[in-house]
Design a protein around this nucleic acid. Structure first.
Lengths: 250, 250
DNA sequence: ACCTGAACACCGTTCAAGT
DNA sequence: ACCTGAACACCGTTCAAGT
């Protein structure tokens, strides 16, 4: 093959291909066993070429994380199309996140791990920028929904808070539940915790705390959850069923 | 020195010493740069001896984590002695946790990192058991407080929830806020988030969601926070001030 | 101009030799 | 019985040589 300048788009295609291979390696084994050597072995390119794309192993991890966030974003968009009130749509987002996490536990671990100072420290500036854009985009979807809820009269923004803080409250509560439950092996105390139930509990408490209507006492959100699953995520629900990690309806 | 059998207590003393050296290395630099080689260099024992105590690097990390949890537990106990109502005592626990995290950000990172399946997988059974005991003990303190709150008529246990779930809701919401804020470098969206404010917001929402009295609208918890800081943690507050990472009163 | 893979450095883990 | 540290294996990163 004669040497020639590869175009930017070819470069990007190759990068996407590498990220997919890396993700499949994570999926087949786990994040800890992912090495650059294994990526080289699984990819049709050499080590040097791979280091043209990722300046470090952490950079690769962040690239995987960003791809995951984009995938989650698609689910969020689908969730926000749910025909219902504003709080039901927020619940749909929660459901979609939980479904994704249960479908791809190893990828979730990549997302969790990518959120550590040591990873960001070894990541290229562009990748970091992209990462922040990905997260800002997710937050933007939520902020938009908050605006709609206020417009609809379902929510009153606490005077000393902005949209980002409201989103952060929901985000961090979900994040904590996921991180603790999904990351944990066999803790006696955490064993009985169920991701679906605890996530919904957190969401319910936070949303009731905001006075986001309809309050949990005034609405059957269990019924809403069933509708969400059935109307928006039936294929994913079936996939979870087949993988013997069924979605638990509380 | 003539060879002789070392006693169990000598062995434990040596282990505690090694853990302290490892913690000081983490404190001086960061968790990522901690290596067994550096521990060997800093400790008066050889590599082989260190592997008598820790079956892997992960085992050492878990040991550090457990020591941190014990330290946090002492702060919790102090917090629960606060003279006030049940919800104020819960707030005192939150304050103590935030203070510890701000005093020891690198150690917090060790605690966060230890909570990952890959770490638990490479940890000795005893260490893992101890870890679960440490966390169960922390949860036990909270559960006890929940019992007192119910007795005092401040809280009504939701019929479909047990004590552990109530504790988990508070724990996971704090965990998520800490993990996201402390682990993050310079995200534009997360930059404006303030650990103290966001943690208290989460706690307020969760506790209001439970209907834990006095509700935030009926009590000046900002005043309580000041009292907690002053009456229980003045030395730590001063230390934070001197470290140029002051505790932020919202 | 781009790609390759040998070479290097670092670090977690083991174990034969020593006391 | 206990300790030591050289040796090994693995893996992230670089760069001189090749096309």
């Amino acid at each position: 093959m004669s040497p020639r300048t590869i175009s930017e788009s070819e470069f990007e295609t190759r990068e996407a291909e590498l990220i997919e291979i890396a993700r499949s390696l994570v999926e087949k084994a786990c994040l800890t066993t992912l090495t650059i050597d294994k990526l080289v072995a699984a990819a049709p390119y050499s080590k040097g070429t791979i280091y043209k794309h990722f300046i470090s192993k952490e950079d690769l991890l962040m690239a995987i994380c960003n791809k995951c966030i984009q995938e989650v974003q698609e689910l969020f968009v689908r969730a926000l199309n749910f025909k219902g009130n504003s709080r039901e749509r927020i619940l749909a987002v929660m459901v979609s996140y939980i479904i994704w996490a249960k479908l791809h536990p190893s990828q979730l671990f990549a997302v969790l791990s990518a959120h550590s100072p040591s990873v960001a420290a070894c990541t290229s500036d562009e990748r970091n920028t992209t990462h922040h854009q990905c997260e800002a985009s997710l937050m933007g979807l939520m902020n938009q929904e908050i605006g709609k809820a206020i417009e609809a009269g379902d929510l009153e923004l606490p005077e000393d808070m902005n949209f980002e803080q409201v989103t952060f409250a929901m985000w961090s509560a979900s994040w904590g539940a996921m991180a603790l439950i999904m990351s944990k092996g066999h803790s006696e105390k955490l064993q009985p915790m169920v991701l679906e139930r605890e996530s919904f509990t957190n969401a319910r408490l936070i949303l009731d705390g905001f006075g986001w209507k309809p309050l949990s006492k005034d609405w059957d959100y269990q019924e809403t959850t069933k509708r969400i699953a059935h109307e928006l995520f039936q294929p994913e629900i079936d996939a979870l069923e087949n993988a013997d990690t069924p979605f638990i309806f509380i």
